[in-house]
Write a protein that binds this DNA or RNA. Structure first.
Lengths: 205, 205
DNA sequence: TAAAATATGTGAAAAAATTCACAAGCGATG
DNA sequence: CATCGCTTGTGAATTTTTTCACATATTTTA
């Protein structure tokens, strides 16, 4: 069996992807693991180890071809193939995410946004027509949505997550500060803004 | 020398803190490491190891006193002492963060918000008067701000970060998808929303 | 109050992630 | 075309994090 890819490696792959795009803009055609590592303050061996999970992407003595490596990483990460997402909860955070350009750059397409507040439903928010929560299951299936971004209040999150699991969502990016209990089938990733800043502040003394 | 605390331990401490608050609301006065671990799908030994960094917080044979443990964690994390923060960049994300209640719950106080767009400066956004970027250094010093939340476009982030370092900011929560190069003195934590969702989607196949 | 049931705290073991170190491949140079 | 300098790819070593396992302490039960 092939070795499984550490999550951290995938995250760094994305950082490499960004740096490589930057280098391309600069007109730089070739780079060594050492220089690439220097851009993000990690070791060169880390770069090589990460890339080695995916085959022989460089050339001994010569380093990596920037364009080629970028495209290989894009393929590994599946950036070229579009994934449909929806955003649930059109509060200030949900609507900021609806406006966020970064998703599109990595191959995500917002196909629907939901809220249950009657004054929002039917109105356009950031260019997306806000749909009612009752229609969620139907629309997710219709639009072939695989990933849900969950930006609802903490006390509503678990209930909605269960509904999402039932209608076949594959992954949830959860911004609510609660642990979602779902079956192993659904991948959940938590972004906890308060926690990020608190962790940061712990280490400043 | 005392053992240094792993970052992951600090993060979990915050999760424990949340769970303990929840348990308190439920009127639960006592809990074992096993039950607490069950709430967040980790091992009981992990809970005990994490807590053991900070002394003997529980009672053999009896578990942990919920209220007491919560307060001890609050003290460890410094939740009771208010830290002043500012938000730089009043785009949709910045202004969503300005409205975010979660910061206050962990002892953070937004003392200023900044933007350089002239149509925003001087206006109230989410209850905060938007200040001009020129005044940043002065206000940070005046208001004793230690932490900056950076929600500006990627191409402006590095330059502002350098200014922040110069005026003595201790930590930056960076939402711009770029690596900030600063001296070791300033702690930087990156929140990269596109990266989160891409990492998630990598593991669904 | 003695025995049984619980549950912590912590070294030791295991697992995971990072870093080292070097053989092997490539390109440039003379 | 042989040599030299550079750089990859990768096992081995190291470091970090997690899990195990058990001695020790407390509570409950009979």
């Amino acid at each position: 069996m092939k070795k499984s890819i550490p999550k951290k490696t995938v995250q760094r792959l994305l950082l490499y992807y960004r740096s490589l795009n930057f280098l391309l803009q600069q007109g730089i055609k070739n780079i060594s693991s050492k220089s690439l590592a220097g851009l993000m303050e990690i070791r060169d061996s880390q770069v090589r180890k990460d890339l080695s999970y995916f085959g022989h992407l460089g050339k001994r003595g010569a380093g990596y071809d920037v364009l080629e490596l970028r495209d290989k990483i894009a393929r590994i990460l599946g950036i070229e193939q579009v994934k449909n997402v929806c955003i649930i909860g059109m509060g200030s955070l949900g609507s900021a995410l609806a406006a966020y350009k970064g998703f599109a750059a990595l191959g995500f397409k917002v196909r629907a946004v939901f809220d249950n507040a009657s004054h929002k439903v039917g109105r356009k928010i950031r260019g997306y027509e806000c749909r009612p929560m009752e229609a969620m299951e139907k629309i997710i299936r219709q639009e072939d949505i695989e990933i849900a971004v969950l930006t609802v209040p903490a006390d509503a999150a678990q209930e909605i997550a269960v509904r999402l699991e039932k209608c076949g969502i594959k992954a949830i990016l959860n911004f609510a500060p609660v642990k979602l209990s779902l079956s192993r089938r659904v991948k959940v990733s938590n972004v906890d803004l308060a926690m990020e800043i608190k962790t940061l502040s712990f280490f400043i003394k």
